[in-house]
Design a protein around this nucleic acid. Structure first.
Lengths: 211, 211
DNA sequence: CCGTGTGAACAAATTCACAGCC
DNA sequence: GGCTGTGAATTTGTTCACACGG
């Protein structure tokens, strides 16, 4: 298939999962993997994996499977993970501090370059090696230091305002930890991290689960 | 529609979002809302809202809309949010401590009753008002204090072992913060919180975004 | 006349199944 | 013989459009 535009979003959402599992297999010294094995590893049908990959090219060898190394690289290239991404974080409360201290982003090439907060007692501090600035200076900071992604870790009531500010300063992607549905212009990407919503849909099934 | 079983999972995942927005409208003093207005509020088509609700009953009034209060209550009942849920957390590192300090769970009726960790320097401490026990005692704790949900906040390499332990001790739902696809028996619910995967799919669109 | 509830029409996503190649 | 890549078949999910009640 030659299609470049119009890949379903569900497919894009699965690619990082494949990439992560492949990296894990690579670490274990695995050279080749079939869609069957990969599917078993992460609870997905082999056909789905092959179909998903077919949107982007032909990466496998019939009768053999996929080169773990090669497929990992291809997926990282497709997703844009072969480049570094810069991020700013807004809201240095409990949650914000945990995010700043988290090593997982850096390890995958996502670098937080600055943090912002409205409370004077937090401004000027350094958390997880990241300097905290006054949120009043967010726009001017981004003008001289453009960032790709903004992380919102403020309260629900302040989140929309921060989102507007980020979007107005050229940020094209938002990772939103605030429990609110943000309104952003088309073309701006938003991904929500919502543990409470996750729990609230889980209970529907627990309620009726067999003992 | 009278169907009780077989509601699509995507529908269940949307209900908490509706419930949250309705609660917000309620706080603002709003009495009645139409599917049109609710849809605009959170970027969903009115038809989808009506169809989603129709799986569970008839909650609206023709020509008027939905009673905000009534619909909130119905959704909470459907989702099982009219009861309290007890949770245990495993892994009291940076992330685990942030989760223990987070007020959002308690506010929605999800109560963490105990935390567990493998490191002796952490065991015995209290974080966010929750006592930390040795993970060796997890199974015996759960035998005398059954919990509905387990929160996994350990490293990727330890997560499967913890999941097995939780499932073996009667936990029916897992909120997983570890970056790994857990294998659990059918009937056990797993929800993954994956900020890194969220970023990694977002970059696909940022890569090709218009300037 | 407004807005719900819902079959029917449509669109999207998944799975099947097999030709083709290693 | 094994496994990919992919059209076709099937299943699942969304939107339309309108009868009906307030």
């Amino acid at each position: 298939m030659i299609t470049v535009l119009g890949v379903p979003e569900v497919v894009i959402d699965r690619l990082p999962v494949y990439a992560r599992t492949l990296a894990e297999l690579n670490r274990k010294g695995r050279q080749v993997v079939s869609s069957q094995e990969l599917g078993e590893e992460l609870g997905v049908t082999p056909a789905q994996i092959r179909k998903d990959l077919s949107y982007f090219g032909r990466f496998g060898k019939q009768g053999r499977g996929y080169s773990v190394q090669r497929l990992t690289n291809e997926l990282r290239r497709i997703l844009g993970l072969d480049q570094a991404w810069t991020m700013v974080l807004v809201g240095v409360g409990n949650l914000g501090r945990a995010v700043l201290s988290y090593k997982g982003f850096t390890a995958e090439g996502f670098r937080i370059v600055a943090a912002f907060d409205a409370h004077t007692e937090t401004v000027g501090r350094t958390v997880g090696g990241i300097r905290v600035y006054n949120v009043k200076n967010l726009a001017s900071f981004l003008t001289s230091n453009p960032a790709d992604i903004g992380i919102i870790a403020v309260s629900a009531s302040g989140a929309q305002e921060v989102a507007d500010l980020l979007v107005g300063s050229g940020v094209k992607g938002i990772l939103n930890y605030a429990p609110v549905a943000l309104r952003v212009p088309v073309g701006t990407q938003v991904k929500n991290i919502e543990p409470v919503l996750a729990l609230q849909s889980m209970t529907y099934y627990l309620k009726t689960a067999a003992p």
